[in-house]
Write a protein that binds this DNA or RNA. Structure first.
Length: 921
RNA sequence: GCCCGCUUAGCUCAGCGGUAGAGCGCCUGCCUUACAAGCAGGAUGUCGUCGGUUCGAAUCCGGCAGCGGGCACCA
């Protein structure tokens, strides 16, 4: 980038890809565990290999990368580790859909061929995702990229499973699980979503076996009636007290079922009688256990009725519902049907109602793991940001239920358990003994020891459990499996574990965050990260969560193509502000444009042009060749911008370091645009261009201005780098002329120049800016053409303000096109009374534009009337406040003093305006 | 049912005890040799509602309403 070749607008595309390549080729983000520096580690939330990234990933990436780039500038030894997740059920669903479209199925293909296909899919989708992550400018270490199903992660999964099993924290058993008929697998409680559905409440009569009448029960699921094994009533319900213990004859089936008394039944609801189907309903299952009721499963795993359903066998569960109702009606057992809105559990993935089904599965005993996490949380370990999410986390860990981890899927970590099928006639049954081991060889060893001995005539035959593990089981190990665990000597693990912060959305606190802390507690004895930074979700223009399934996702690459990565990142971060709220990204789907991102693109362009301006005005020098400015030579504007720079340096470091990323972005935006560009650059133009044959003093001053300009821009680029890495890198090289082998990304955060901080100077400068604004406003009101010079008079009794205005007279002249600037005290101003002038006030300053003959009288009057109204309103408010005796008595003295000063000022302003109005006649 | 968040300018959101801000949009005037993706100026709000605490509340507390979310769930 050279001055000559510098276009007027910033073109992100070329710049961004160039730096992404340069960083990667140089291994800029490959940390060395043996390097010095305080360790700082982040493992990224691995995106699912289900296709491509969406805006939520871009958001998460922007936040994480901003944090790690900042920490790198702080001199930390930063590891940011990327990777992807195999997303067992999601990927398998996609693949099965593909196969179905091709007229085949995974069963036809066979397990091996299916997995080959899955790996091919992973290669493609994973490649797409990694490419997208690169385009986001992610400063991760690609050498350490991991995949939850890679060899290392798989070893960790097996080790974790075996150890938990040894500790009795994994067990196998037959329980009611959430069965998803669409994916043909069990799913965990978390993968079930309750949905309000308009259904019916069918009331049926169940005849007493004694023939002495009926009991009326109500159900939303008539088909389960076939598996009823009791009817329950509340033990305190007088209506049925004498019936408890008697039996009913189940219609359509003819089974004798008992009437039991159970507290679960609400006597107030319906008839107070509940049909009990222990094998198809969690509550009924519990009742069944309490009363030792038989479990009759009437449905198969594909959602059709099984042989136990008698004449309904083979029907789909929803057809069976209709058929059962029809049969009940035909046989006179149907009392009535009511419309009924109720919650139905749906499978997250399959999008069909889940079926509570009795099934033998593997479970993790979660309570001991959760207890450890709850204890750690007492010490704010990990620390949640914002804090309120810790409550959500804790509540979930309290009263947690066991975790069903087996899935009837092929794509995933196969469960490391081997059934000794030789004990049960060559097939796996619920009673087949098994061994859990790290490998088939180890399993054989264990099995031989147990079953191979003398009394057994037949050889030991093993068969591995065909099921896979819940994806989140491996995700739970992510913060340490990626660092080398179970090898506890791994250098990365020693150096970077526990990690520094986990950055993720609130939607996976249970799924992922809690699973990681439970696993980490069990295997590493520590919580896996110090902080958990929870951010909101990206919502669309209609405030709906963006998701692939809702079809309202926005491809981040589309916005990157249009506006650049840095603009997208800046826009996303700027919107968060730090409260953990969701962000709504405005977006026009017709044109693929976003005003928010466009604003950030414009900001990037502004920075580009500020640097371009510098390159055109530094006289071919670099910040290094110019050196530090001489403090004694600094002008007012220099001291002001250096004070502001120091403050912004301090504030942004504080904000970046405490997850106030949005505030950091806003602060830098304002500083760069509204202070550096709007004021400082304008103020120094005059000094940078001293004209023909300048004096030695003017040349020295030009150099000072150049030095300060260079310093401000250089520092600003470092401060902005975490947010806009490519642009800042490009501009930094443009200014420094450094070869591409060195990177801004690897520089140090600039030291804070405490001495430059000057509150008083900043306050004074704010007054100067205000004064200039008033002049400009008056000129606009007067309708003066921008180029037309006009005299300016300032009148103030404050000597410091007068001095400031005199010192800044050349600046004022330049910025207001003043013909002349006079700073007068009130007495001197009396002399010019009577002259027709446009007048304005700000603070303790009168601004006059003596424009005899040029002034539009009506404009003048309206301006004065406006000032008067404003002052009067303020006077009323302030007078009222001061009149309150309690105010003077109880408010802090400085507040009262400030109030009095404001009143005096407002009164002076009002007086001035009135006088002028009178003079106008 | 329990828990959490939100309600501020037309839109998207900051502010979180001293009397209201930004970006976008809008109006007026400008191609002023960094930038029209720009510059200068301007307009716009009983800060959801009722009450309380306080000298003072957009800001703290409570009630209510609306919106959003999480957890649990009675057939």
């Amino acid at each position: 980038m050279t001055e000559a070749s510098l276009p007027k607008t910033y073109d992100p595309a070329g710049t961004e890809s160039r730096w992404q390549q340069a960083w990667e080729q140089a291994g800029a983000f490959h940390p060395d565990p043996n390097a010095p520096g305080e360790p700082f580690a982040v493992v990224i939330p691995p995106p699912n290999v289900t296709g491509s990234l969406h805006m939520g990933h871009a958001f998460n990436t922007a936040l994480i990368d901003t944090i790690v780039r900042f920490q790198r500038l702080q001199g930390k030894n930063v590891l940011c580790l990327p990777g992807t997740d195999h997303a067992s059920i999601a990927v398998q669903t996609i693949l099965e859909k593909q196969l179905k479209a091709e007229g085949t199925s995974k069963e036809t293909l066979g397990r091996e061929a299916f997995l080959e296909r899955a790996w091919a899919w992973k290669a493609e989708s994973g490649g797409t995702i990694v490419g997208q992550l690169r385009r986001l400018g992610y400063s991760v270490d690609w050498r350490r990229e991991r995949f939850t199903l890679d060899a290392g992660c798989s070893e960790a999964v097996i080790e974790a499973f075996v150890r938990l099993h040894e500790q009795g924290l994994i067990y196998r058993g037959e329980y009611l699980v959430n069965w998803c008929p669409a994916s043909g697998s069990a799913v965990s409680d978390l993968e079930v979503e309750m949905k309000e559905v308009d259904g019916h409440l069918w009331h049926f009569r169940y005849p007493l076996s004694s023939g002495a009448g009926f009991l009326e029960v109500a159900t939303t699921r008539p088909e389960t009636l076939l598996g009823d094994t009791a009817v329950a009533v509340n033990p305190k319900d007088p209506r049925y007290a004498d019936l408890v213990g008697q039996s009913l004859t189940l219609p359509l089936v003819g089974r004798e079922i008992p009437i039991v008394a159970d507290d679960h039944v609400d006597a107030e609801f319906g008839t107070g009688c509940v049909k009990v189907t222990p094998a198809h309903d969690p509550n009924d299952f519990a009742i069944g256990q309490r009363h030792d009721l038989p479990l009759i499963t009437v449905m198969a795993k594909d959602g059709t009725m099984n042989a136990a359903a008698g004449r309904f066998a083979g029907l789909d569960r929803f057809e069976a519902r209709k058929a059962v109702v029809a049969a009940m009606e035909a046989e006179g057992f149907l009392v009535k049907v009511e419309p009924y809105r109720h919650s139905v559990p749906f499978s997250d993935r399959g999008k069909v109602p889940v079926e509570p089904l009795l099934s033998t599965q593997w479970f993790v005993r979660t309570e001991p793991l959760a207890a450890r996490c709850r204890e750690a949380l007492e010490q704010a370990d990990p620390r949640f940001v914002p804090e309120r999410w810790s409550k959500v986390y804790r509540d979930w860990l309290t009263g947690i239920r066991d975790w069903c981890i087996s899935r009837q899927l092929w794509w995933g970590h196969r469960i490391p358990a081997w059934f000794v099928v030789s004990e049960t006639g060559g097939t796996i049954t619920d009673s087949t003994p098994y061994v859990v081991a790290r490998s088939e060889a180890e399993a054989r060893e264990k099995a031989e020891a147990q079953f191979g001995g003398g009394t057994h005539a037949h050889p030991v035959v093993l068969e591995q459990d065909p099921d896979a593990l819940d994806t989140w089981f491996s995700s739970g190990l992510w913060p340490f499996s990626t660092l080398g665990w179970p090898n506890t000597d791994a250098a990365d693990l020693a150096r970077w574990y526990p990690t520094s912060v986990l950055v993720t959305g609130f939607d996976i606190i249970f799924f992922w965050v809690a699973r990681m802390t439970m696993m980490a507690g069990a295997f590493t004895g520590q919580m896996p990260f110090r902080d958990v930074y929870i951010h909101g979700l990206v919502r669309d223009e209609n405030n709906r969560k963006m998701s692939k399934s809702a079809g309202n996702g926005i491809d981040p690459l589309l916005l990157i193509d249009r506006y650049g990565t840095d603009a997208l990142r800046f826009a996303l971060v700027r919107e968060v502000a730090g409260a953990g709220q969701d962000i709504r990204l405005d977006y026009d789907r017709k044109s693929d444009t976003s005003a928010t991102v466009e604003a950030s693109r414009n900001f990037a362009n502004k920075l580009w042009n500020a640097t371009r301006f510098a390159l055109m005005n530094l006289g071919g020098e670099t910040p290094a060749s110019l050196g530090e400015p001489d403090p004694a030579a600094l002008q007012l504007a220099d001291r002001w911008i250096l004070s502001r720079l120091a403050r912004v340096n301090r504030d942004s470091a504080e904000r970046y370091g405490s997850y106030g990323l949005g505030e950091a972005a806003k602060g830098l935006y304002e500083f760069a645009w509204n202070e550096v560009c709007d004021w400082y650059l304008e103020l120094i133009k005059r000094r940078l261009n001293p004209g023909e044959s300048p004096s030695a003093a003017a040349l020295a001053d030009q150099r000072t201005a150049r030095q300060v300009l260079a310093k401000v821009l250089m520092q600003l680029l470092v401060l902005l780098h975490p947010l806009m890495p490519h642009l800042s890198e490009e501009l930094w090289h443009g200014l420094t002329g450094e070869p591409e082998a060195t990177f801004l990304a690897l520089q140090s955060w600039p030291a804070l120049d405490e001495a430059a901080l000057n509150d008083q100077l900043e306050a004074s400068f704010a007054e100067l800016i205000e004064a200039i604004r008033v002049v400009r406003n008056l000129r606009a009101v007067a309708g003066l053409k921008p180029a037309q010079p006009a005299p300016v008079h300032f009148v103030t009794g404050r000597t410091d303000l007068a001095a400031l205005l005199r010192e800044a007279t050349p600046d004022i002249t330049a910025l207001t096109r003043a013909e002349s600037v006079a700073v007068l005290n009130p007495a001197a101003a009396e002399a010019s009374r009577g002259q027709r002038a446009l007048a304005g006030v700000c603070g303790e300053l009168q601004v006059l534009l003596p424009l005899e003959g040029l002034v539009d009288l009506a404009a003048l009057r309206s301006r004065l009337e406006k000032d008067l109204a404003k002052a009067t309103k303020e006077i009323t408010g302030l007078t009222g406040r001061l009149a309150n005796p309690n105010f003077a008595g109880k408010a802090p003295p400085e507040v009262v003093a400030e109030c009095r000063a404001n009143l005096a000022e407002a009164e002076a302003q009002a007086e001035l305006a009135r006088t002028r109005l009178v003079e106008l006649g």
